[in-house]
Design a protein around this nucleic acid. Structure first.
Length: 882
RNA sequence: AGGCCCGUAGCUCAGUUGGUUAGAGCGCUACGUUGACAUCGUAGAGGUCAGCGGUUCAAGUCCGCUCGGGCCUACCA
């Protein structure tokens, strides 16, 4: 076995072999219980970032764990066409060639899109392979492939006929840069330092003027009314009268409306129905007309008047202000901080615009999604997200699902020559409905929001609407692992579409991961230049170390800071595992891994490590069940390094070297390694397979691969509380002896004399283990008696421990050692005082549970005895004078 | 504006239903080992558990308020 631990020497090879042998291919007919998990489809042309690496790690960990537990595990991979994002990329590329999308035409543009997609497509798989993802690539899907497109059409048609999708003219969030409508979720509000302009509007038939305040003067060109609160005494008299819109001359009725806040500004609101959601609603209540003064490019429209038509909306703002100044109508300008909706993708301020779009009424589905979490059919982890979830679903509004893009699922709606709309799976079906021929129909040019197809992902990927074997077997899926940032974009919509279209909640658990940050806790972003590429990390540390790091950082509700030092530490863990195995294999000829192992006749260290192993397996299982991957990792790390390597292998050395043979040490060690590798496999798949294959007898666990070997659970017959306690005492004694000899400056190479005693039973055990204790302490003798006064001594877990250089005169107490002991004594005195006070308090002794009181008493007694030991060391009797 | 989460060692974080002298990993310092190991052993420095108040025999843990950080949601022109 190579002395050098080099993950690159085996990782890729294993991934390839696993795939070739079809270990990841799920079989719906196996009869095993299914476990299914869907990849959140990354952008087909994208590069995986650390967030993906984190999610992939957890998804794969779950899948491998379930697969080993005997589930028919399906980890279904795929990619998303990511409408706007991808189209923008290709448009940018075209621009570099000097080509405009519209000049190219829809068909040729889409050809370019598919070309682009084809070029990048393999990259996602390559990156997932690097991480060791155990995806079933035979089931890979793409949101625009034929099957999924069919599912999308089916969903649309069905929802349309159920009256849940309709087309209508509403005020929508318009992105002038993207030239498309976007949903509420794609609008993010940003704090903007703007101004509040106070403008005087003359009152018709009077010399009076009223003052209105606005943050967007350019929209006044589209005003159709002025509103005030009905109880506002200042303006009540204006009801029924009109203002005259400056620069335009339009008559604006004064309307009373309770939505107006009389405290804000002058208490009067200019009403621009077609460019402000508040005004749109208000106008609707009062039957007021609207005027569109800004167009789809964010420029002023002809209806804004000849002076402004064609000018950019922000330029027009300045122009309008300038004109108002000239007219003497600008009363004052104030600085004003407010929130303005911006296009998430385009980055520019959203323009509320009246436009004809398709909407999906999700209120009923939202109610069912709420039922799912309230009734326990769906669990969000961490639970704290449930409130946000409820709040969002309770206040949900219709979802604008049409986009004025080309890259995506074109809406399955056709218009006849009379402009009537026919919704069907294809043009032939539409023509049949319309009673006409396909040639006379025109398909709606819009495409669906990317998230519409994503919402169907858990079942469309399994063949829905067909009742396929896969769908029957694997749907509903089990767990969804994704980032909280797409809880509403994606998760909520999958749940809504799932209950609506399949009558099932698409998964029972959603594990939401935190955001991956850099070592300083700063969000990774290209502009900050702190982005870490998962591929680089895999190259540097190996996939197993990357996975272990990510999994061990996944604490609920926490962000995930990537720390290279930590990753170095976990690579060292891999190295530790490598070398421990190398050592074991070099010293244990003839021994084999045991499928089962009888502890009868084994010595204490062997029984101890087997007991610890069983408990560790039990705890790891519990942690995984609870989605506490971090704690599962910590347990495994501690077991392997802290118990197996630090103690068991050390305890086994005298036996392995033949100095003090014990029965079946090799069998035990190899068996423990086997179980350890299997426990670790879901987190560190490569290393564990590589090493497991080298264990003699591993084929008795599984003939081919650790991937399919059973996941270890508790092996209760190995658990032995007594031996754990005994070996625990042995470890305490050895640790204390080492501490005492190091503190007192005894030469490390010196063979010392050791004393240890507690009670007859413990002493008997320590006597049995005397050779081991002497080996671990480098002691020439172990005396089962109280330490003599001139020995360095202490009390640990009730055991009086002492150590001294043999024969030679008592060692002088060093200055440093004295200081340490005095400090310890001080702390001890304080703790003793505290414990005495507590035990002297009747409130405590009367009200606290008896076992707590008893525990305190025992502790106090032990502390007092330790105090005596320390005093004895500080002022040994008999040496005081000498 | 409403809601949620977070604030514990230099760093990253654990701390289950309140109950030892508040822990782990990594890092740092010192000494010492190394006959599987990029090891290992021992010790040390470093904490008013953000702050204030309350409940309780007992609070890092429960309650209220304040401060700081983050996020989600929202039609105040």
């Amino acid at each position: 076995m190579d002395k050098r631990f080099d993950p690159r020497s085996y990782e890729a090879a294993w991934q390839q072999r696993w795939a070739e042998r079809g270990y990841f291919r799920a079989d719906p007919r196996s009869g095993k219980p299914p476990f299914c998990l869907m990849i959140p489809p990354p952008n087909v042309t994208g590069k995986l970032h650390m967030g993906h690496a984190l999610q992939t790690t957890l998804q794969d960990l779950l899948t491998r764990w379930k697969r080993m537990q005997g589930f028919e595990a399906l980890y279904l991979p795929g990619t998303d066409h990511a409408g706007i994002a991808t189209q923008l990329m290709v448009e940018r590329q075209l621009r570099e060639e000097g080509i405009q999308r519209r000049c190219l035409g829809r068909e040729r543009f889409l050809e370019r899109m598919w070309e682009w997609k084809g070029r990048y497509h393999g990259s996602i798989r390559r990156q997932l392979d690097l991480l060791g993802a155990s995806c079933d690539w035979s089931r890979e899907r793409f949101t625009l492939d034929e099957g999924l497109s069919r599912a999308v059409r089916e969903a649309f048609v069905r929802l349309y006929h159920e009256g849940l999708i309709h087309r209508g003219e509403y005020l929508v969030n318009w992105s002038p840069i993207l030239e498309t409508a976007v949903s509420d979720l794609e609008v993010e509000s940003r704090t903007v330092h703007g101004h509040l302009w106070h403008v005087a509007y003359p009152i018709e038939g009077s010399d009076e003027r009223v003052v209105v305040a606005t943050t967007r003067p350019e929209t006044m060109l589209g005003d159709t009314a002025v509103a005030f609160h009905p109880d506002d005494e200042r303006y009540r008299h204006l009801a029924g009268r009109h203002a005259v819109l400056p620069l335009v001359g339009r008559r604006l009725p004064f309307v009373p409306d309770p939505a107006v806040d009389p405290e804000f500004g002058s208490g009067l609101v200019k009403v621009t129905p077609f460019h402000d959601p508040f005004d749109f609603e208000l106008a609707r209540r009062h039957g007021l007309p609207g005027v569109t003064v800004i167009d789809r490019h964010g420029r002023m429209s002809p209806e804004a008047g000849a002076e402004f038509a064609g000018r950019d909306r922000f330029e027009a703002r300045e122009g309008v202000v300038k004109r108002l100044v000239e007219e003497g109508l600008l009363v004052k300008v104030e600085d004003h901080v407010h929130n303005v909706g911006h296009s998430q993708r385009g980055g520019e301020p959203i323009e509320p615009l009246v436009s004809t779009q398709w909407f999906c009424d999700v209120s009923g589905m939202a109610a069912r999604a709420l039922e799912a979490t309230r009734g326990g059919d769906l669990r969000l982890i961490p639970e704290s997200w449930e409130k946000t979830w409820e709040h969002w679903l309770e206040g949900i509004r219709p979802w604008c699902i049409s986009r004025q893009l080309w890259w995506g699922h074109q809406i399955p709606a056709w218009y006849d020559e009379e402009g009537r709309v026919w919704v069907a799976h294809d043009v032939e079906a539409a023509a049949a409905l319309a009673g006409t021929t396909p040639e006379r129909l025109t398909q709606d040019p819009d495409v669906l929001d990317t998230w519409f197809s994503s919402a169907l992902w858990p079942f469309s990927t399994l063949g829905w609407p067909e009742e396929t074997e896969d769908l029957r077997t694997f749907y509903p899926t089990d767990v969804l692992v994704t980032g909280f940032d797409i809880l509403f974009f994606w998760v909520a919509r999958m749940v809504m579409m799932g209950v609506q279209l399949t009558d099932r909640v698409p998964f029972h658990t959603v594990h939401l991961t935190g955001l991956v940050r850099d070592a300083e806790g700063v969000k990774m972003s290209k502009t900050k230049g702190n982005v870490i590429d998962p591929e680089d990390l895999v190259e540097e540390y190996g996939a197993d170390a990357v996975r272990f790091t990510l999994a061990s950082l996944d604490s609920p509700g926490r962000d995930v800071p990537i720390n290279r030092e930590q990753m170095t530490g976990y690579r060292a863990f891999g190295n530790k595992i490598w070398n421990a195995t190398r050592f074991a294999l070099s010293r244990l000829e003839g021994a084999e891994v045991q499928p089962a192992l009888d502890t009868a006749g084994l010595a204490a260290p062997e029984r101890w490590i087997l007991s610890r192993l069983s408990r560790t397996a039990g705890e790891v299982g519990e942690k995984l069940e609870a989605f506490r991957f971090d704690e599962a990792c910590h347990r495994l790390y501690h077991f392997f390094w802290g118990e197996l390597c630090d103690w068991y292998i050390e305890l086994a050395k005298p036996a392995m070297f033949g100095d003090a043979p014990r029965p079946r040490v090799g069998e035990v060690l190899l068996t423990v390694l086997d179980r350890s590798f299997r426990l670790l496999h879901p987190v560190m798949p490569f290393l564990t397979e590589e090493l497991w294959q080298r264990l003699p007898g591993h084929e008795r666990i599984h003939p081919e691969t650790i991937v399919l070997a059973p996941y270890p659970g508790r092996e209760a017959q190995w658990e032995d509380e007594t031996v754990e306690e005994q070996v625990g005492t042995l470890i305490d004694v050895v640790t204390r002896v080492r501490a005492l000899r190091a503190e007192s400056g005894m030469p490390a190479k010196a063979e010392v004399a050791v004393w240890a005693t507690k009670d007859p039973e413990t002493d008997r055990f320590l006597a049995e283990q005397a050779p081991l204790i002497r080996f671990l302490c480098r002691a020439e003798a172990l005396h089962l008696a109280p330490p003599p006064p001139d020995a360095r001594q202490d009390l640990v877990e009730g055991v009086a421990v002492g150590v001294a250089l043999p024969s030679a005169a008592a060692q002088e107490l060093g200055e440093e050692e004295r200081r340490r002991l005095e400090k310890e004594l001080e702390k001890l005195d304080e703790a003793i005082g505290q414990a005495e006070r507590r035990l002297g308090d009747e409130g405590f002794t009367a009200k606290a549970p008896p076992q707590v009181v008893a525990g305190n008493r025992a502790r106090l007694a032990e502390m007092k005895e330790r105090r005596e030991r320390i005093l004895a060391t500080l002022e040994p009797i008999g040496t005081a004078g000498g």
